[in-house]
Design a protein around this nucleic acid. Structure first.
Lengths: 333, 333
DNA sequence: CCGAAGGGCCGAAACGGGTAAGCATGAGGT
DNA sequence: ACCTCATGCTTACCCGTTTCGGCCCTTCGG
């Protein structure tokens, strides 16, 4: 009776058989040993594994170890990744500690539940929630508390979170405007349903008031370049000394509509401020003053959470990341 | 003796116990039945599952079903995702057919092997390889042939691939230049190690020659905006009628250095052509003529591969996606 | 009206690939 | 002789799915 040739990947049983040892020994030799294995058997096992091209099935392993080394990254749209550098580093770092990233695009608030189901179904070790559709209450209901990190800027309850200290940056931007004699301002906002956005708007209003700058109009955009262009067409802009946008993309739209007035004439018709400090704002064609946060600290904290969630949690659920204001041509007089 | 309270997610055994049926019945009731279950037991099981908030462990399931519903997306850097819209749609579509995306950033050619090990280790259903570090031979050694789709533009051997028909777009761009009386040209290239890049360069040279345009210089960039700026400083540019860049980002760099000469003076000092037709090229500040491909077709083909790999394969390994040339201010006389 | 055949429904058991705990062995130390 | 300790094997278990055989109820032929 001829043994039918096995299809698919070799298993640890194959390795053990070829090496002439038990499955357990093979397992121990291949993983970083919790218990010792003699040198020659280890060598035989490793050799056999090499010969067969054996790769452990991480899914099977996860059944007993209770850890899959998968991290879910939850976003609304891929556009959330506007800062590609940030994500590039983040994913690189996550992979370097031996985990892989499952990318979950939520898209709309209805699908949050569906995602969470999937996330749990894969038993991911942790979820990094960038989506602001997810509120911590819902999330915590379904995950173990300490495995979810809220990165959407909300601090709605006790869930672990890393949030940029936006108030500081906003205060600096408004102070900059006040110093330059700004008396009237327009605020261009994004999707107002978002808690982050509401907080930002609140900060702006408070700071403007504190400096005695009157808010003559509030215009609704959707964070996009096109929406910036759209609102920029309003005639109300004649009376504004400064325009604050809650995203750089909207500021870019505004800049393109008022390019001549903003970059070439002096004195300027108004000062322009963006938000996020995306790489683009550094391009010559879009010298937009902006507010950013310290990406290095941000990533470092996320990784601290992933490697030692308990410790992270006990050290306090909320980590604030410093923000900064960077002044560029768009807000120079 | 008190049963210790179980930690973690409820399992199908818990559901079965609560419903008062066997595990097998619970399993059958919960999945789309391959074999029948009586209506009342099914109802009891579903009820129990709801009560416990049961979610099947997809990893455990995959052990027997041999399918995890995971798709690996392999890229060099996240910057490969320069076209966010494309990826947004792609991931959305992948999720809508019930699969999740594992995101693998390869970063450098050395890590390709490591990735492949991981990819196989998770037993992903398919890998979409955007990275041009991966060559099909290596990949096929480790995966089943039909589960890897090469999307890096290479056609190095029999692996399934979807590639934009870049020659058509390039021919159109060069023809456009020829029509406008261009006699001399500069070519700004990206990382030359990439086979895609080499193919592009080859196409450009052939087309230039065909139209009798002489290539007076070839400059090496790295696809980035900054590298575009760097090469744009060269004095050789005085003699060129046209500049072809193999990425829009480099063209943007060039544009910023020569902004006045390119956008304001007439006649222009030279005509500028980019590549990729990224959304940015549509922004007013960067009206760069470019070459793009049909994203809708592209995504549709990828999904066809994911849902029916066999069929895809039997219908021919290579799918070509049409490209187009779009003319904008940067190449108008 | 009875027995056999057929079919629906169910549960026990095996399976998939791997790890962890428990137990057995032998060698070395005292 | 007894205890340790290193090492190895056996076994149980993780969480689902699937196979297989058994039971019971119909249905049909005689």
């Amino acid at each position: 009776m001829i043994e039918p040739r096995k299809l698919g990947q070799p298993t640890i049983a194959d390795v053990a058989e070829l090496a002439g040892v038990s499955r357990a020994i093979a397992s121990r030799a291949l993983s970083s040993e919790p218990r010792p294995v003699s040198a020659d058997k280890r060598e035989r096992v490793l050799q056999a594994a090499r010969t067969l091209g054996y790769k452990p099935n991480l899914l099977a392993r996860s059944l007993t170890t209770k850890t899959v080394n998968l991290v879910a990254v939850v976003v609304n749209h891929i556009h959330d990744l506007s800062d590609l550098d940030l994500f590039d580093h983040l994913i690189s770092e996550i992979q370097s500690i031996g985990k892989q990233v499952i990318f979950v695009r939520v898209g709309s608030s209805e699908r949050i539940e569906e995602f969470l189901r999937n996330g749990i179904a894969y038993h991911v070790d942790a979820a990094l929630v960038f989506s602001d559709f997810a509120n911590a209450a819902t999330v915590r209901k379904m995950f173990r508390n300490d495995s979810v990190l809220m990165l959407n800027g909300m601090r709605d309850d006790g869930a672990p979170a890393i949030i940029p200290d936006e108030l500081t940056g906003i205060a600096a931007a408004v102070a900059d405007a006040a110093e330059k004699g700004v008396r009237t301002a327009i605020l261009v906002t994004g999707r107002s349903a978002s808690a982050v956005e509401q907080a930002r708007v609140g900060h702006y209003k408070a700071e403007l008031q504190r400096h005695g700058i009157s808010l003559i109009a509030e215009m609704r955009g959707d964070y996009s370049y096109q929406s910036g262009r759209r609102v920029a067409a309003s005639p109300a802009w004649q009376k504004a000394d400064a325009v604050f946008c809650t995203s750089d993309a909207m500021a870019m739209g505004v800049l393109d509509v008022h390019r001549n007035a903003l970059l070439e004439n002096k004195p300027k018709s108004f000062l322009l401020y963006g938000f996020d400090d995306v790489t683009l704002a550094e391009y010559e064609a879009y010298p937009i003053s902006s507010i950013g946060y310290d990406k290095t600290v941000y990533i470092k904290e996320i990784l601290r959470f992933l490697s030692t969630p308990k410790e992270f949690q006990s050290a306090g659920m909320l980590v604030q990341v410093p923000t900064y204001f960077v002044s560029r041509t768009s807000s120079r007089k």
